[in-house]
Design a protein around this nucleic acid. Structure first.
Lengths: 222, 222
DNA sequence: CTGGATCCCTCACGATACTG
DNA sequence: CAGTATCGTGAGGGATCCAG
C-alpha cells in the first residue's frame, strides 16, 4: 500500500497501477505485434535494463496482462504473449501513438526506430475507409527494417519481414512522414530517389492514401 | 538524453515521455473535467506531494498539454486547464479507465473516490445509443460526492455539484456498480434502501441502461 | 546463445516543513 | 492559496555475471 498505488478507487488509477510504470506500455506495444522471447523484447527496447524488463514481465503476468509460455519441444524456448485482457490495450496504444506522434518532431540522432514500432505506426495511421474494396500487398524497407502490409477491403494485416509476392516494394532511407503528410508528392518522391519502387508503381498513391497522416487543426508545440 | 526519454522515435514512446510519468495522467483526468486551481488538484489527488504536482504541471505546460492562466480580477487566482492538444487525451483516458475498471476489484479501505473520477467514470460508461431521443437530468449523491448528469438524445453532460431542477435525485452510500452491472435489479435496489430516490422513479431504469456496465467476455483476474 | 539474476549507483519520487 | 525547500528512500539505469 505504498508506492505504485494511487489510493484511488478509479479505473484510470488502477490502469496506471497495472501499466503505468516505466517501460510497461512499450513492452505491451511490442507484444501487441506478436508473442516474443525475452531477447526479442530486449532487441526492440535496447535501453531497458534486463532486471527492469524481467520485473515488468513478472508484474504484467501477475496482473493477467501477459502470459509466459514455454514453447513445445524441440524449441523449448520461452515466449511472452498478451492475454485477451492485455490485447484489449490495442486500441489504447494505437490512440496514444497517434496522439504522441502529433508532437513528434524530427528524428533525433540518438533515437532509434524499431520494427515493432513501425508496424504499430502503420496500424495507427491506417484509414480503413480510404479505399473500399482495394486489395494489395506492400513490402517496406525502411533502412534496415523490413515490414509488410496486406490490405484487403478496409482491413490491414501488418507484420515483420518480407512477403512472398508483394505487389509493390517500397525502399527508402529517408523518413516516410513528409510523403504521408502530403508535403512531398508521390511522383516527386520517386523521381528524387527518395523512394525506390519495385513492382507496380501505380499502387503507390493508394498506399499514401491508406496511411495518410491527418494533420489536425490543433497543433501542439514540438 | 537520460532518464525520462526512451530513445525511440515513436509516437507511443513520445506520448509516454509526455504523460507517462507518475501522476501525470491522473492530473489530466481531473483537468478533463474542467479547469482547476492548484489546491483543487491537490484535493482530488490527496496523496500527491506538492512538489511533484508542481513539477508535473510545469512539465505538462512545457509540453503544450496544460495552460496556466491567471483569472481576471478580482479573483486573480491561478487555474490550470488543458490546451486543445491536452483535451485530445479525453478518449484515451476514458478508454484506459474502462480497461482498468474491468480488473478493479472491491473498493479497499484505503481507497478514496473523488468527484472528478466519478464524473469520468460516468462518461466512460455512458452508452449514447442506449436511449435515442431520451432527455433527462439526474443528480447523484454518492456518499459525500454530489455530481449530475444531463442526458439529451445520446449526448451526456456530466459535472460536479447539484442541479437546479433535476428530474431524479439518486442517493446512496453503497457502490453503484452492482446495480449498473445488473447484479441488483432497480426495484430491489430501491426497496432494500440501497438507493434513495427523489423525483420521478420511472427514470431509474433509463439511467441504468445508459450507464450499464458491459461485462465483457474476457475477464482478467482481479 | 537464451533467459535471466545480482551488483552498485543515481536520481526521481515521497514526506514534510516552510514561505510569499 | 500556491507553491518552494529539504531530505531520505527505493525504483530504475548500467554493467556484469551465471545457469541451462
Amino acid at each position: 500500500m505504498t508506492r505504485r498505488t494511487y489510493g484511488q478507487f478509479c479505473g484510470v488509477a488502477h490502469a496506471l497501477e497495472l501499466v503505468g510504470e516505466r517501460w510497461a506500455l512499450l513492452i505491451a506495444r511490442d507484444l501487441l505485434v506478436g508473442p516474443k522471447r525475452f531477447t526479442d523484447l530486449r532487441r526492440g527496447l535496447p535501453r531497458i535494463p534486463t532486471n527492469v524488463l524481467s520485473a515488468r514481465l513478472k508484474e504484467l503476468e501477475a496482473a493477467g496482462i501477459v502470459r509466459r509460455r514455454v514453447l513445445p519441444r524441440p524449441a523449448s524456448s520461452v515466449v511472452y504473449e498478451l492475454t485477451d485482457y492485455g490485447s484489449e490495450l490495442d486500441e489504447i496504444v494505437l490512440r496514444l501513438g497517434r496522439w504522441g506522434a502529433q508532437s513528434l518532431g524530427e528524428r533525433g540522432p540518438e533515437e532509434i526506430v524499431t520494427t515493432d514500432s513501425m508496424i504499430m505506426a502503420l496500424r495507427a495511421t491506417f484509414q480503413p475507409t480510404a479505399a473500399p474494396g482495394f486489395r494489395a500487398s506492400y513490402q517496406l524497407h525502411l533502412g534496415e527494417i523490413v515490414i509488410h502490409a496486406r490490405i484487403d477491403d478496409g482491413t490491414l494485416d501488418a507484420g515483420a519481414g518480407p512477403l512472398p509476392n508483394p505487389d509493390l516494394v517500397i525502399e527508402t532511407e529517408a523518413p516516410l512522414k513528409p510523403v504521408l503528410a502530403g508535403e512531398i508528392s508521390p511522383t516527386e518522391a520517386v523521381e528524387s530517389g527518395r523512394l525506390r519502387l519495385t513492382g507496380d508503381p501505380a499502387l503507390l498513391p493508394q498506399f499514401i492514401a491508406l496511411f495518410a497522416i491527418s494533420t489536425t487543426p490543433s497543433r501542439p508545440p514540438t
